[in-house]
Design a protein around this nucleic acid. Sequence first.
RNA 1: GGCCCCAUCGUCUAGGGGACCAGGACGUCGCGUUCUCAUCGCGAAGACUGGGGUUCGAAUCCCCAUGGGGCUGCCA
Length: 455
Amino acid sequence: MDVRVRFAPSPTGFFHIGSARTALFNWLYARHTGGKFILRIEDTDKERNSEEYLKVIYDSLKWLGMDWDEGPGVGGNYGPYLQSQRGDIYTRYVNKLLSEGKAYEKDGATWLRLEGERYTEYDDYAKAEVEKVKAAPVVIEDIIRGHVERAEDRDFVIVRSNGEPVFHLVNVIDDIEMGITHVIRGEDHLSNTSKHVLIFQALGAPVPQFAHMPLILKDPAVGKGKMSKRDKGALIEEYQTRGFLPEAVRNFLCLLGWSPKDDREKMDIAEVIRMFELTDIMKGSARFDEKKMLHLNSAYLRALPVEEFVAGAKPVLAKAGLDFAIYDEAALADALKLVQEKIFVYDDLPGYAGFFFTENYAIDEKAREKIGKKDDIPGRIAKLIPALEALNDWTDEAIQNCLHKLGESNGEKPYAFFGVLRLAVCGSGGGPELHPILRILGKERVMKRLRAFAS
RNA sequence: GGCCCCAUCGUCUAGGGGACCAGGACGUCGCGUUCUCAUCGCGAAGACUGGGGUUCGAAUCCCCAUGGGGCUGCCA
């Protein structure tokens, strides 16, 4: 039987990193097995339904390079793929349960009836006397977790008194209708699975295979519990706006709970697809580590051909109000090449290389203080100006020679003037190689900056 | 409270009875390269949660404890 998996998010207006990973593992499994990856929107809760919100889901999946074989936008033979349009189907199934006596109505809602001896007990959590059922435990052979048993002990609502079917019901009905073979989802659903299995059985439908993946927890430094949408790094949107490469984010997500079992980390997605197995997924939950994410991203950034790096940099520079159009393509590539190997995300660009594009670069006061301690800043500037002014051949070598001579003529090291010069021209105490920076900026701008810095 | 799941360096992980005084990566620290730095190179510190079993032998299997997580809604 062909594998059919689904990702079933509900439109909330944001896309959580945990959802992204759940989607990814479903997608990987479908691609690995040659099965189908289905996108289904769980928008039964009317509060959570708007075009805007749906777009967030589609855009995030596309950004991360996950394409769906059936679902909104692409169609398929098992639609509609929006739960809000499937009301008739649910009604049909509920009527079946009702007519077979497997469900009943009470307080205006529809309840699934559990099989077993009934008794009354005080429930500490509900703080009330409730009717319970000694039902046989539901057995789940989870692909990741193995044998799990859990007994439901109360009838539960499947249709609310306002007529809306609840999540557990629609989720199961859709999985039946769409022929889902493997339910791959977060461990937070593990306890719900007993309800789901009971519904599958009441409906006389085959139960799919389950694979409950570990959750992504907060960085312990940040707090306890699973990552919430308010935590740094929790939303895919954040990676988009900070200028992460989608391939890097996706790669990082692959490695959170799954491993190729060798020392590889930066992996081509085709290779991940080839190796991916549900049985290799970790049982223990993972913690989000932003530093590692940044590291991976920098590796991807470095591996980019310069033209692509430049193309990716442009919107970031533009957004920061930096005018890259003052350079032609070749010069722009020249400048950005210097920083490509140094930054972690595109977002670092304005702060690290902004001086290339504006005369309003900030002077790092800390660096000024540090340099000022051992260097006579105004004195060095006063010597730098005539020396560079006299330079007609504005090449890396010529600039370097000039600076070296200047240092040595002063009875110092060849690079004695570098720190002050960098501070004046770039505003910072560190950065890429100095000669190419000066060359790219051009003599005119360098001289202008030196004079401005002197006054 | 009840039920369910989980447990190797700070973090992500390799390991699945002898190959492990536990390997890799991020981070940290040190050194080197460099005019500088946020890159790069080299090196170091750093873990089998605890206690009982089983076994000739346990990080690996079992039990208990502890710790973490989840569910317990007419949310999804």
